[in-house]
């Protein structure tokens, strides 16, 4: 997994609720033979592009200074809906490193932590203020998301703490994935399975 320690950059205020993973990446892009890294151009395609394929200038992702922004600010329930991990790959492909929202869809949240994309949960009033600070000074405003110290630094220098599970923080800071750690517990797994086979033999086909 990619490491995440800290990112500083422009944050795009995509201030809508329930941004679902269908909106982030259309399912057919995951059927077509596109690589994970190649999904970026299709991220949010339904709002970035018009039906004729041209860019929609009204979409904030197509506007300066947000075009290459590494952070997204959003409202409640970002990443709800489908479990498609392609949503996280597409965001990464578009250059997104962190998303700040009041809370996230559970499966999307888990998928982020498998890929080094940081979901940061902050109260909505803090996010609205971050969005205001971003738009008040377009071009100059930057936000920092610091995982080591679990804090967001606003464009005006305010420090806003956030919480993250210690286990996930450690894995993300060090780019660890779970499989190797779990494999080291193979004896415990096999012991559990042996005992379960006698307790619930009908489960074991």
């Amino acid at each position: 997994m990619d490491k995440f320690t800290k990112v500083t950059g422009v944050a795009t205020p995509l201030m809508r609720q329930n941004v679902d993973t269908d909106l982030i990446i259309r399912i057919e892009r995951l059927v077509d033979n596109v690589t994970r890294e190649g999904l970026g151009p299709y991220c949010f395609e339904q709002i970035r592009f018009k039906p004729d394929g041209s860019e929609d200038p009204d979409c904030i992702f197509n506007q300066t200074p947000y075009r290459d922004a590494p952070i997204i600010l959003s409202r409640e329930n970002f990443g709800c809906g489908s479990s498609r991990e392609g949503a996280v790959w597409a965001l990464k492909g578009m250059g997104i490193k962190a998303v700040i929202a009041p809370y996230f869809g559970d499966i999307f949240n888990n998928n982020c932590f498998q890929n080094g994309l940081l979901p940061v949960a902050l109260p909505i009033h803090e996010i609205e203020q971050l969005a205001d600070e971003m738009t008040a000074s377009p071009g100059n405003a930057r936000i920092t998301v610091d995982l080591e110290n679990c804090q967001v630094i606003s464009p005006t220098g305010r420090t806003i703490p956030f919480q993250v599970d210690a286990r996930r923080q450690h894995a993300m800071l060090n780019g660890l994935d779970d499989i190797a750690l779990t494999m080291s517990r193979r004896d415990e797994i096999e012991a559990w399975q042996a005992s379960d086979k006698s307790a619930r033999p009908w489960v074991w086909l």
Binding site: I107, N111, Q114, N115, T182, M183, I189, Q193
Partner: peptide, 30 residues
Amino acid sequence: DSHTSTHGGLGSLAFGIGSSELVHVIATQT
């Protein structure tokens, strides 16, 4: 698949997972 919750209708603890978690289950059954 997120609609794995369906199987809970028969009293199974069932949930949808992403691709990375899927690889973890294939590899470890956990």
